[in-house]
């Protein structure tokens, strides 16, 4: 896909985020929106996957370690064809397969259940190790939150991945600088995140995570790195794309009301029209 096509798709994915969270009357729009461009790139450009065969043997794997961004993840999967986009409206509803946090047992395309912060990177590292043990060429991608980097298990996994030289593993940190209780600096800052990954023997790339040129070049660079896993520190804007949500910690885990939803969808429609 060209960057313009990716931008258009990212608008659709953001629409899915808003629609699903509005329908659920709860959920996590802020981080889903900051991560939407990277999720778009992963599912529409980067990863070797097949929606017709979600369990395809040597597919690339993705683990959403910041599992609360399920609305963004599900919207990317739905728009990519793993399940109907219409199902997004059932997010968090009783009986729906779209659980509040990713559930690999019931959601086509989900490679690992997640939601309890800090755990996904370990699972992704295990997948990358499995590929190495079997001499397979599939790659593993894992998205973590910046606040999530306060969990000790993230660094246990980083130590292991660096020690094992898992160059088939790419970690993306959605560095939107906000967590539930405020900015990282106000809560308990894990900064400098990049330098910590570097200390654990990762190749580290800093990008604007809402810019497709930079996203593309970072993933291309990661594939060239040998004997080291890569950490892409994606500097993003929480709530990206919805004016009143941008850079607001309050939109971490809150659904828009009907009026707010209307405004948000109009903004996205406008953004989409500008790309045509």
């Amino acid at each position: 896909m060209t960057n313009l096509e990716l931008q258009k798709m990212a608008v659709k994915i953001r629409e899915g985020i808003l629609t699903s969270v509005h329908s659920a009357k709860c959920g996590h729009p802020g981080g889903s929106l900051s991560a939407a461009d990277i999720l778009t790139y992963l599912y529409f450009e980067e990863m070797n996957i097949d929606p017709e065969q979600p369990k395809m043997k040597d597919r690339d794997r993705f683990v959403l370690s910041k599992g609360h961004n399920a609305p963004g993840y599900y919207s990317a999967l739905a728009n990519r064809g793993f399940f109907p986009v219409g199902a997004l409206e059932t997010l968090r509803h009783i009986g729906s397969f779209l659980q509040g946090h990713p559930d690999m047992k019931h959601i086509p395309g989900v490679d690992m259940s997640s939601g309890s912060l800090g755990q996904g990177l370990s699972a992704a590292t295990g997948m990358a190790l499995a590929a190495k043990l079997d001499n397979k060429s599939y790659r593993v991608y894992c998205m973590c939150g910046d606040g999530e980097c306060e969990e000790g298990q993230i660094w246990e996994a980083a130590m292991f991945a660096g020690h094992r030289k898992l160059d088939n593993l790419t970690v993306i940190v959605d560095n939107n600088n906000l967590q539930i209780d405020g900015t990282l600096a106000e809560v308990c800052s894990p900064d400098p995140i990049g330098e910590k990954f570097s200390a654990f023997r990762f190749h580290v790339i800093h990008i604007d995570g809402n810019d497709f040129d930079q996203i593309r070049s970072a993933f291309e660079e990661a594939k060239q790195v040998k004997d080291m896993p890569t950490a892409i520190i994606a500097h993003t804007v929480k709530g990206k794309g919805i004016s009143y949500m941008e850079n607001q910690a309050g939109w971490h885990g809150k659904a828009p009301n009907d009026e707010e939803y209307k405004v948000a969808m109009e903004e996205l429609e406008k953004a989409g029209a500008q790309l045509c």
Binding site: R61, V63, M104, D111, M112, G118, Q119, G120, L121, S122, A123, A124, T125, G126, M127, A128, L129, A130, A131, L133, D134, G152, Q153, E156, A157, M159, F160, H163
Partner: peptide, 23 residues
């Protein structure tokens, strides 16, 4: 044999990831 070092939480997660890949 995979020695994960003194980091049991990660070891359990590594095992989970390996299991998703058929190990």
């Amino acid at each position: 044999h995979i020695d994960c070092g003194i980091a049991e939480a990660n070891m359990v997660g590594i095992a989970a990831g390996l299991a998703t890949c058929g190990k």
